[in-house]
């Protein structure tokens, strides 16, 4: 599905990603963990195409396409999705309109018919249940005045409606209480299929109790310091990130 090779990226003069290689196959969930400032969110943003980061070296191939050559909207239309760590507010634009516009752009790119407001309402109503959100939130402005938990659930609602092939969850768990965390994780688990893949970025092991990853990668200072199975997350929880930092870099 996605193949990242020796990826380097910087902001201004400062290099943040210092050679990341990673391969995720369809049907897999990978987790990226690591201390603050290790480059986890940068990796998520670079994959989605944020213009604030400059890719200085490396390649990313997504279903045979050169992902880095694509505009952010082309990536989204091709099935890449980023659940934002800090979802952005757009006052005055209703959630329903925003979501339907996005949905239709992606349908158009796939050569499918656009949904009119009524058809779309059917689609979205069913998806709302998945994240336990009320229909009333469709008429509210995009993320404006949402609580932290609502914003995160709204990201997962978008994920559910847009049905991406490759979804990146950037610290979706941060700021969620245990109930909201469970709702979000349940949603993701139900969306999991053989033909899609997830990259879950998280600081804590907690989320991985609910979304069980196939692989865990530990990012330290812009490099993958260690990779392993789901047990690696538990080991990190026990021993802390210093343990990884102190060890020599293992082969990825």
């Amino acid at each position: 599905m996605i193949h990242i090779s020796e990826l380097h990226a910087s902001v201004g003069e400062k290099e943040i990603l210092k050679g990341i290689s990673l391969e995720i196959a369809a049907g897999e969930i990978h987790a990226i963990m690591g201390p603050n400032g290790s480059g986890k969110s940068t990796l998520a943003q670079v994959l989605a195409g944020h213009p604030g980061y400059e890719v200085t070296a490396g390649t990313v191939t997504y279903n045979g396409q050169d992902l880095l050559a694509m505009d952010p909207e082309e990536r989204a239309q091709a099935g890449v999705f980023l659940a934002f760590q800090y979802p952005v507010e757009i006052p005055g634009v209703s959630n329903a309109y925003f979501l339907r516009s996005a949905y239709n752009e992606i349908r158009k790119a796939r050569g499918e018919a656009e949904a009119d407001p009524l058809e779309f309402l059917d689609i979205v109503s069913e998806r709302l249940k998945l994240v336990d959100l009320d229909e009333a939130m469709l008429n509210r402005s995009v993320n404006a005045g949402f609580s932290g938990g609502e914003k995160k659930r709204n990201e997962i609602l978008q994920l559910a409606v847009l049905d991406p092939r490759f979804a990146i969850l950037d610290e979706t768990d941060s700021g969620l209480d245990i109930d909201a965390l469970r709702i979000v994780a349940d949603g993701v688990n139900r969306l999991r299929r053989k033909d899609n893949a997830f990259l879950v970025v998280t600081h804590y092991q907690r989320l991985l109790n609910y979304i069980v990853p196939d692989r865990v990668h530990v990012l330290v200072d812009g490099r993958i310091a260690r990779s392993g199975g789901k047990e690696l997350a538990l080991e990190l929880e026990e021993r802390g990130y210093d343990w990884v930092t102190a060890e020599p870099v293992a082969g990825v």
Binding site: A48, G92, V93, F98, S101
Partner: peptide, 27 residues
């Protein structure tokens, strides 16, 4: 840029993004 990027990351063009943000402002 963050608002525009957010819209783009959902598949909307830059033009649609600006139009949406401005129209929301003027709603």
């Amino acid at each position: 840029e963050d608002q525009i990027f957010y819209c783009k990351a959902r598949g909307l063009s830059g033009e649609q993004a600006v139009s949406m943000i401005v129209s929301g402002f003027c709603r």
